[in-house]
Amino acid sequence: MQLLTSLIDGLLIGFVYGVAAVGLTLIWGVMSVINLSHGPVMALGMFSTYLLFTNLGVNPYLALIAVAVFGLVLGLVIYAVAVHRVISAPHLSSLLATFAVNMIIIGIGTAVFSTSPHNIDFSLGSIYLGPIILPAARLLAAVAAILFTVLLYLFLYFTRPGKAIRAVANNRMAAELMGIPSAQVLALSFGIGTALAAVAGGLIATFFPFTILSGGPYELKSFVICVLGGLGNPLGALLGGLLLGGLEGLIPTFMPVSWVPVLEFGLFILVLLVKPSGLLGAKT
């Protein structure tokens, strides 16, 4: 029973990991940029939720809508300032440009929030499903994560801008020839990617304490998840998130918890080497 509880607990967090990873993989899929500012944006999502809740008393789950809008705008700004100029340059340029953004956010964030831990004091208690006890915050976070993923799916498949994003991801040159304004589409995709990161950060903040540096480990997890699911494949990223969450739930019942990252990154390298298109066999 302990095993099942750990698994479900892990899967619930996995949905949240999935949302962050979907954001990262969307950006990669559309513009082949690995966004190294993903973690700090998640941290900003955590702090925005915190500020809205602590200072204005906004329910953290309602605050997510504002956090998403904030993430979107932030992403548009980051794209315009740092990414647009290096979009066709070698990978190193976009990696370093987004890392510069990472430094700027962490630098300002450290000055404003210091690096001491914060937490959102909003307890929902636990939910009892027969013998399984689950923290309600995680259950709600998973529900919210699923909701945002569904919204993203509807957006990508049933709206014009969404279809334009998929077209550009598929073949930027061809999409441009068809008259799709690729610069705007790229900016929008980047914005949606960071909005998802901010939302994931906000969700994590509802059940874990955090600092301005907390985004880093989640960013690394997002890399792992994206590779497991196949870089550039949003559905794969979501399933990869579940896989990683499930592993994180299960592994500690068999061995010390400190071995979790060894196995995670071991798996990551293995997948990159053996099946770089991801476990789900998506075409990248």
Binding site: W28, P261, I269, P276
Partner: peptide, 25 residues
């Protein structure tokens, strides 16, 4: 021998993974 078969961003990601795996190990 293993990771140099990857190119571009995949290689960069793999080296991050190698570092994190080594740290954790």
């Amino acid at each position: 021998l293993a990771v140099l078969r990857l190119r571009g961003a995949y290689f960069a990601l793999a080296t991050i993974g190698v570092n994190e795996a080594a740290r954790a190990f």
